[in-house]
Write a protein that binds this DNA or RNA. Structure first.
Length: 417
RNA sequence: GUGAGCGUAGCUCAGUUGGCAGAGCACCGGACUGUGGCUCCGGUUGUCGCGGGUUCAAGCCCCGUCGCUCACCCCA
């Protein structure tokens, strides 16, 4: 074996697929309950879309995009996230002018970022998420968070940490930047080199610095929520109110900052602490100006994205797996003479939608039974030289450990029950 | 992009001062004429990540490279 999957990519093997389907089924079902419809956008887009949508100053745009030229020299980028693309589609097809004013869409699919792989971080990874465009009501924010928690609850992930914050509107944010700048200016010479850089580029990023020596300065700094304007404050209060109403008590984290430029007001993150450094299992927030910034009408909106691989990891950490396979029937043969009969029988059963495994290769009966046990077969049908003469087969119930002789003709009706 | 640790059978991993590449699990066969999960016996499985170098001799030492893991960074 010399050719391997590219760095940062992973095969999702058959043994894991059941878990993936389990999650995906819950996700689709829940989205449907909350009135979201699926949208599928291209895996690649014009590079310009992400530069304008995500923000020129962000790390994603600056160093993590898979960008290349197509044969006509157009700059193309593999999508690093899906919000910009959904907004593009929303505008391109005038979705906002149809039906109701609130358009709710969900997506599932692979995203691409050129990063150093780590636990819970890959170069190709799967996200699912929603975008709700056209309402600035705080109830939509709360509903989004409630929906995510419902998904995790159904999956079986408990003890997740829900953190919320407000990053304010445009005006609050410029004010807050100024406040931060002034505050940190006096301490910055004692802080780490990363923070010194952040002060110039994006002071809000200082807030989630992990360097020990920076912590005491960060603790003393003014929080966003204190510097935010009246309407933004009210919005946050309302979101909390609705969350409480839904039986959810989030943790206020004034230091929660999002990495993408388009976020406004509500920002939230859902963490699983079994995961290690990359522990955000879902995150999102409001982006009230993105549609306008991309050339559309003012359209308030909120969305989130969740990482499939991290959810699967969290499930494994907690020993959660999807349960049991369906009633597989394993057909065992005693010699090659009866293989024809066995094959015909398999076909007849499958035609009736009964899942059947048939051993084509010559193996001992013992080995065939072992295999049947390995795939969790509910029944084993033994097609033997002796029985076949009377038109019979042995039907063994693997759980009850009982077996009896039955007519081959009646087998499909017996098993269909 | 930075730092640390690690690449040996399908999986988990031993491998001494450089001297015939190993164990357990799994798989296959048998003990048990044609019946799984237990027990016992036997068998199959290798580009020692890849490429150079040193040496009579390299899984082991040296250089490079690719990959994995964890952390920084960033994020889902």
């Amino acid at each position: 074996m010399s050719i391997k999957a590219p760095r940062g990519t992973a095969d999702i093997l058959p043994q894991d697929m059941e878990r993936w389907h389990f999650i995906e089924d819950i996700v689709r079902q829940t989205f449907r309950c909350y009135g979201y419809q699926e949208i599928r956008t291209p895996i690649f887009e014009a590079t310009e879309l992400f530069i304008r949508g995500i923000g020129e100053a962000t790390d994603i745009v600056n160093k993590e995009m898979y960008t290349f030229q197509d044969k006509k020299g157009r700059s193309i980028t593999l999508r690093p996230e899906n919000t910009a693309a959904v907004v593009r589609a929303y505008m391109e097809h005038g979705l906002g002018s149809q039906q109701s004013s609130l358009v709710k869409m969900f997506y599932m699919g692979p995203m691409f970022r050129y990063e150093r792989p780590q636990a819970g971080r890959q170069r190709q990874f799967y996200q699912f998420g929603t975008e709700a465009l056209g309402s600035m009501h705080p109830g939509v924010d709360a509903e989004t968070i409630a929906m995510i928690l419902s998904i995790f609850e159904q999956i079986g992930l408990a003890g997740l940490k829900v953190e919320v914050n407000s990053v304010g509107c445009e005006e609050c944010r410029t004010n807050y930047r100024q406040v931060l700048f002034e505050y940190f200016q006096t301490h910055i010479s004692h802080m780490c080199s990363d923070c010194q850089m952040r002060l110039e580029k994006n002071p809000m990023r200082i807030l989630d610095c992990k360097v020990e020596s920076c912590q005491s300065y960060i603790r003393g700094c003014p929080t966003v929520i204190d510097s935010v304007c009246e309407p933004c404050r009210n919005h946050m209060d309302e979101v909390i109110k609705y969350l409480n109403l839904m039986g959810i008590s989030p943790v206020m984290n004034p230091r929660l900052v999002r990495g993408l430029d388009y976020y406004t007001r509500t920002a939230f993150e859902i963490k699983d602490e079994s995961l290690g450094a990359q522990n955000a299992v879902a995150a999102g927030g409001r982006y009230d100006n993105l549609v306008r910034d991309m050339g559309g009408n003012i359209t308030p909106a909120i969305g989130f994205a969740a990482g499939m691989e991290r959810i699967v990891l969290a499930m494994k950490n907690k020993g959660l797996g999807p349960i049991g396979k369906q009633n597989m029937v394993y057909i065992a043969t005693t010699s090659e003479n009866v293989l024809d009969t066995a094959a015909a029988l398999a076909q007849r059963l499958r035609a009736g939608n009964i899942p059947v495994e048939l051993s084509w290769d010559k193996k001992s009966l013992k080995s065939q039974f072992r295999q049947a046990a390995n795939i969790d077969a509910r029944y084993v049908v033994v097609v033997g030289d002796e029985e076949i003469k009377q038109g019979k087969v042995v039907l063994k119930d693997m759980i009850k450990q009982e077996q009896r002789l039955v007519d081959m003709e009646g087998l499909h009706t017996l098993l269909a029950m």
